[in-house]
């Protein structure tokens, strides 16, 4: 057990190390960092001074260690584009993205699971087939097209919802959209856009798992014992479908953060994704590197948690001992 966790932690550290190295390479080999910081007119002596100040005259591995040290202390450098420390720039962006991702994930689960159960139980009903067909089209629609359609219908034609930005936020330690009607109005369309793909995924997954589980012996036995449909469906079947659903949704949270880039662009939502995109357009390397590190960290943590949950929930993994987390 402890060996498993340690191995997993080491693997995560390795991934983080690799990503940090890529980020560091971006910093140091793309363009001349000194040129990025001083103007064209700086004298050679000034350049040399800055080079020493930044430690660029040191050997490669010492520079890398220093970079890692800075990052661990929360110093991600200065944004070339905005001229501020990256950490300050990120400060109010992170909660915006996390709130959006959180709402989208909850929506995907709350709507996706019941739809999956329904289509799994009533396999041949027309309504199930309709839901499946719609979900297939939903998967084929690119995220940004869905967003534009929503804006066209609800902002341009009906004029019900604002089409961009976060609107009014309430400060609850961070600026939040969750505690006011206005905030929800701004939040709802981006959240729907972001969750749609995940929703169909959850629905199809639950459906497939339900079909699988309903064929098993213990469900037949439960029926033979004369339990009500409700007890069989929800007590026996659904409970056993939820494990893969939870883990896959967990893994998909990483995907949501990535796809938030698109949603945030469509709705001009001031989150991390929008910041990252602007960084790419302006080749603002410190911001790119920071985003890379942050996203990698989130991915690694989620993967770690999912692996651990697997380990705790699925007893088979424990008896296999060195079987690993997959």
């Amino acid at each position: 057990m402890i060996a498993f966790i340690i191995r997993r932690l080491l693997q995560s550290l390795l991934v983080m190390g690799t990503v940090a190295f890529i980020a560091f390479s971006l910093f140091n080999f793309v363009g001349d960092p000194v040129n990025n910081m001083v103007g064209q007119e700086a004298t050679e002596a000034e350049r040399e001074y800055i080079r020493q100040l930044l430690g660029l005259d040191q050997p490669f591995y010492i520079q890398f260690m220093r970079f890692v040290g800075n990052v661990l202390q929360g110093d991600f450098g200065q944004s070339y584009r905005l001229g501020q420390p990256v950490l300050n720039v990120l400060g109010d962006r992170v909660p915006a993205t996390l709130e959006l991702v959180f709402v989208a994930a909850v929506m995907a689960l709350v709507i996706g699971v019941p739809m999956g159960v329904y289509t799994g139980l009533k396999r041949y009903a027309i309504s199930s087939k309709l839901m499946l067909t719609i979900s297939l089209i939903g998967v084929s629609l690119p995220t940004f097209v869905i967003g534009i359609m929503l804006i066209l219908v609800f902002s341009v034609w009906l004029n019900w919802l604002p089409s961009f930005g976060r609107g009014q936020t309430v400060n609850v330690g961070w600026d939040s959209n969750l505690f006011s009607l206005e905030g929800w109005k701004s939040m709802i369309m981006p959240a729907i856009t972001l969750c749609l793909f995940q929703l169909t995924l959850v629905m199809r997954l639950v459906r497939a798992e339900m079909l699988e589980v309903l064929r098993t012996d213990y469900v037949k036995f439960a029926r033979a014992r004369g339990l009500s449909n409700r007890a069989v469906h929800f007590g026996h079947a659904l409970k056993n479908t939820l494990m893969p659903v939870i883990t896959i949704t967990g893994l998909q949270v990483g995907g949501l953060i990535a796809f938030a880039i698109i949603t945030e662009t469509v709705f001009q939502w001031p989150g991390m994704g929008l910041l990252f995109l602007q960084a790419i357009q302006f080749v603002d390397i410190p911001v790119m590197a920071t985003y890379l590190l942050l996203v990698a960290l989130v991915f690694v943590i989620i993967n770690l948690i999912v692996d651990m949950t697997y380990y705790f929930v699925d007893p088979r993994l424990r008896t296999e001992g060195k079987g690993g987390g997959h």
Binding site: T18, G31, I262, F276, I285, M288
Partner: peptide
Amino acid sequence: DIQLSFPAILVALLLFGGIKSV
């Protein structure tokens, strides 16, 4: 495996940004 754990669109974005900056 490592590449697959990141969404393709994110990988493409990062590559595009990285190559472009070179």
